[in-house]
Nucleic acid binder design. Structure first.
Length: 271
DNA sequence: AAACGCGCCAACCGCTGTAGA
DNA sequence: TTCTACAGCGGTTGGCGCGTT
């Protein structure tokens, strides 16, 4: 069956809604409801197709719509649900009162997906490798970096102890390559130093940490990052080890979650 | 001040699922 | 069982606003 285009009829208006059209639609739905979207615009006196009316109502005019920026909690919920459900925006929206599928979809494509991509290169590299050593020697890509509390930007009395395997020489090598110079405030490192930073320069930690964390359940539909890692899946070293994505707002959330789930996370300092 | 590029988001398009005849 | 109409969903687009050059 070939369906006729929604607004094929001439005279039906498209594009942004005017305040007057909004008023007419709201008044009509408040008075009569929206049992039949197809018939609604004609009965309400709107030169719109029913589909357009439904979209305008569900995405914008509905009284229970929550406007404004998404909270941290809402964003985390979206990420978590997307990991489990994939692009089932309406299902995700059902779990976020006052948010529409369209809005969530937009937030995902404009903010959250980009954030997750910050650490995707390292994750992909890890997934492709079968040996820990391959991952340990991979170069850091783009502006993604994992660092330790010895980062000069990271001076806080609440910093956890470093890994027992970590030597002082390891610490200095990381610190020197990570000094903020102003050339790239977003990544916190000089551009020319990116290539010199590798997983090799990161102090050695329990290998089972990386392996278990990054190979955790990937059964979700998203390829962007591993699904939720449980305490059981994550074999954590006996001493808290502190890795940190420090691309400002982007990327580091992942590591936050990682450590919270490990149950070993001291309070993180604010940048 | 103008031109340009880019990100955001409201709205559209086309497909699928479902109910009813 | 098939056909039709409709609602809903997810992908995509286009215009607007803002920042940068």
């Amino acid at each position: 069956m070939v369906r006729a285009p929604c607004c094929e009829k001439m005279g039906l208006k498209k594009g942004p809604w005017t305040p007057e059209e909004d008023r007419i639609l709201i008044n009509y739905i408040q008075q009569y409801g929206h049992g039949n979207w197809r018939a609604l615009p004609k009965q309400a006196g709107l030169l719109r197709c029913g589909k357009s009316c439904r979209l305008r109502w569900t995405n914008y005019l509905r009284p229970d719509i929550k406007r404004g920026n998404f909270s941290k909690e809402e964003e985390e919920t979206i990420i978590e649900l997307h990991e489990k459900l994939g692009n089932r925006w309406s299902t995700i929206a059902a779990r976020l009162p006052g948010r529409t599928d369209n809005e969530i979809k937009n937030v995902w494509h404009t903010h959250l997906k980009k954030r997750l991509k910050q650490y995707q290169p390292a994750l992909n590299t890890k997934r492709q490798s079968t040996e820990i050593s391959e991952f340990d020697t991979c170069k850091l890509e783009e502006s993604y970096l994992v660092n330790f509390p010895t980062n000069p930007r990271f001076e806080s009395p609440t910093c956890p102890p470093v890994s027992p395997q970590q030597s002082s020489s390891d610490i200095s090598s990381v610190t020197e390559s990570s000094v903020v110079t102003g050339e790239n405030q977003n990544t916190g490192i000089k551009e020319e130093n990116v290539d010199s930073c590798s997983w090799e320069t990161i102090p050695e930690i329990d290998e089972s940490f990386w392996f278990e964390a990054l190979s955790a359940d990937n059964s979700g539909t998203s390829d962007d990052y591993p699904a939720t890692i449980t305490d059981q899946q994550l074999q954590f070293p006996s001493e808290p080890v502190y890795a940190y994505g420090w691309n400002m707002d982007d990327g580091m959330d992942f590591w936050y979650n990682l450590f919270i789930k490990a149950g070993e996370l001291p309070e993180l300092p604010e940048f």
